[in-house]
């Protein structure tokens, strides 16, 4: 019986959410191709106790794998694949996987199918879909080389199954690794020292424009930003007026930002502002003028008086966060 092997990634000792999504993708692929599902993870066996139904659960254990290195992981996974002979090897598409999986594939004489969002079965051929041109185009691929086929799964593409006890005992696998084969010396991960304001790397931004009318009203938006856990930013007129410091200005003469969420409050959307935030993944605009240009680039829009909408939103967010 052929095998779909999912190589999970541990995050603070247990499989990360995106790993469980990859596992769900593996389960679906195993079902579709009539294969059995195996899972492996670098780390202690105890961390793999709630992965549901599996044909094999393998904890890869070796002191040289305590800290991630591409050399170590490549060698360990290559040995595991040699032992299990799977048809498919799935990974979560994480920074770590992007770092070592192409190397692993090359060592096996294969190419990793990276960042896959979906697959479909067409006769005996599995067609995988991945995005091209930053998501503007989908590409459909199939593997022409013999097994194994290595695939990494995009975050959010599959829903992780509810956790259930692992159906079989976890085996331990100790790869043969030599210290000399590990050429890189990784340091301890750290978070960047909190700079004064670095809007460019902020994941969430609440930005305020001249619709706020008065310096005293800034507090209203500040509360919203706090509730959301977002950085506060502003358009140029606000910073020019000195209501917020210049370092919080977004736009052509200020910072260029690309957050996951950009919530524009009372910003009509002058070009100088738009060029500074057009890379945002999701734009929400609150403005009283339904013709405000900001709505042209917004994903979600609320037409209304910001002095009513913002407090309502702050309350709703606080409630949602509990």
């Amino acid at each position: 019986m052929s095998t779909v092997l999912v190589i999970l990634e541990a995050k603070s000792g247990s499989p990360s959410r995106i790993s469980l999504e990859a596992l769900a993708a593996g389960a679906a692929l195993a079902t579709a191709t009539g294969a059995q599902l195996a899972a492996a993870m670098v780390g202690p066996a105890a961390a793999m106790d709630s992965l549901g139904s599996l044909s094999a659960a393998i904890a890869i254990e070796h002191p040289l794998l305590d800290r991630y290195t591409a050399d170590g992981y490549t060698a360990a996974c290559a040995q595991l694949i040699a032992r299990l002979q799977p048809d498919y090897v799935l990974f979560p598409h994480t920074y770590q996987v992007r770092d070592f999986a192409p190397r692993l594939a090359t060592r096996l004489g294969r190419v990793l199918l990276s960042d896959v969002t979906a697959f479909s079965l067409d006769g005996n051929t599995v067609t995988f879909t991945r995005q091209l041109f930053q998501g503007k185009l989908n590409g459909h691929y199939h593997a022409a080389a013999p097994a194994p086929c290595l695939v990494s799964i995009q975050a959010g593409a599959f829903h992780a199954a509810p956790s259930a006890p692992t159906s079989i005992p976890v085996e331990s696998f100790a790869p043969a690794l030599e210290p000399s084969a590990i050429r890189t010396q990784p340091g301890e991960p750290f978070r960047a020292a909190t700079q004064t304001v670095d809007l460019s790397s902020a994941p969430l931004i609440v930005s305020v424009g001249r619709g706020i009318k008065d310096e005293a009203n800034i507090a209203l938006v500040q509360e919203l930003a706090q509730a959301l856990g977002a950085e506060l930013a502003a358009s140029r007129p606000i910073c020019d007026a000195g209501w917020l410091p210049m370092e919080r200005q977004v736009g052509s003469s200020g910072q260029t930002v690309a957050p996951k969420l950009y919530l524009a409050v009372g910003i009509s959307g002058a070009i100088q502002h738009l060029v500074g935030m057009k890379g945002s993944q999701c734009v929400v605009a609150i403005n009283k003028d339904e013709n405000a240009p900001i709505f042209e680039i917004a994903d979600y829009g609320i037409v209304g008086d910001l002095f009513e909408v913002v407090p309502a939103l702050t309350t709703a967010i606080r409630k949602a966060k509990g």
Partner: peptide, 13 residues
């Protein structure tokens, strides 16, 4: 030049 992966088709999302 034998590729291991083939792009069969592209489509607009």
């Amino acid at each position: 030049a034998q590729p291991g992966l083939l792009l069969d088709a592209v489509a607009l999302p």
